[in-house]
């Protein structure tokens, strides 16, 4: 249950918070870039954050991003902005949060104002419509791609694969709000943790605590 146990499986050690070129200006430009190419809703930001912030800059780990998505989803407000606020705050405190938020919303603000002021017929433009017919299936695939990598990060095995499958199914087929899925999963994790701590043999718990679903068998060969 020590921090080192958790980091064992992550591919890279996270850099210390205040290094890695995470100046406030860098936060602004990075999130400006991300905001500029987030097309089709908040989840379209995930592949961009994954490549820019996790892989390229290494400001946070993929596991951090998963945790952050759960938090951002269960908070009110705009998913993508919530993620920007958290990353900015983690790296540079409140000024960092301000810069990342500004960077994230500035492209929207400028582009929408340009359209409102100069191109009112934007959505009827035939070239724009054509480009968007190409962009839409691409966005769906861009969101599908990180799902598999995230599944590895979340240490999904045959014993806990039912959690994402059931969650996705409830949201997709029955229109259940993602918030309820998050709340249920959080309570489930908490209950499972209680259950583990009640079992008489705590020797497995050190590693088993990494993933409640495969505490006895699967996690040892992994690490």
């Amino acid at each position: 249950m020590t921090p080192t146990d958790i980091k064992q499986d992550t591919p890279r050690q996270p850099l210390p918070s205040f290094t890695g070129g995470a100046g406030s200006g860098s936060l602004f430009t990075t999130f400006f870039h991300i905001g500029l190419f987030t097309i089709g809703g908040g989840y379209a930001m995930i592949p961009l954050i994954e490549t820019k912030v996790v892989d390229e800059k290494q400001w946070i780990t993929r596991e951090d991003l998963l945790d952050l998505m759960a938090v951002a989803q269960s908070c009110p407000g705009i998913f993508a902005v919530n993620i920007a606020i958290f990353i900015g705050y983690k790296l540079r405190g409140i000024p960092g949060a301000l810069m990342s938020t500004l960077g994230c919303i500035m492209p929207s603000f400028l582009i929408i104002l340009a359209i409102a002021l100069f191109f009112r017929q934007f959505q009827d433009n035939v070239w724009v419509a054509r480009a968007f017919r190409g962009i839409r299936p691409c966005v769906v695939a861009l969101i599908a791609a990180p799902t598999f990598k995230m599944a590895q990060t979340a240490k999904i095995t045959w014993t806990n694969v039912w959690i994402p499958v059931l969650g996705a199914f409830l949201i997709w087929m029955f229109g259940v709000s993602p918030i309820w899925v998050i709340v249920a999963a959080g309570i489930g994790g908490y209950m499972y943790g209680k259950l583990i701590s009640l079992t008489p043999d705590p020797s497995h718990e050190g590693e088993g605590g990494i993933n409640p679903q495969d505490s006895t068998h699967d996690s040892k060969p992994q690490s």
Binding site: M1, Y43, M69, M150, I156, W172, G193
Partner: peptide, 25 residues
């Protein structure tokens, strides 16, 4: 420990959210 356990439940669920976002699109 409590926060860690909660997130252990949350992480697989978030993968489900991402899959759902994709299916819904």
């Amino acid at each position: 420990p409590i926060v860690e356990h909660v997130f252990m439940g949350l992480r697989p669920a978030v993968v489900g959210l991402l899959a759902a976002a994709c299916l819904l699109l």
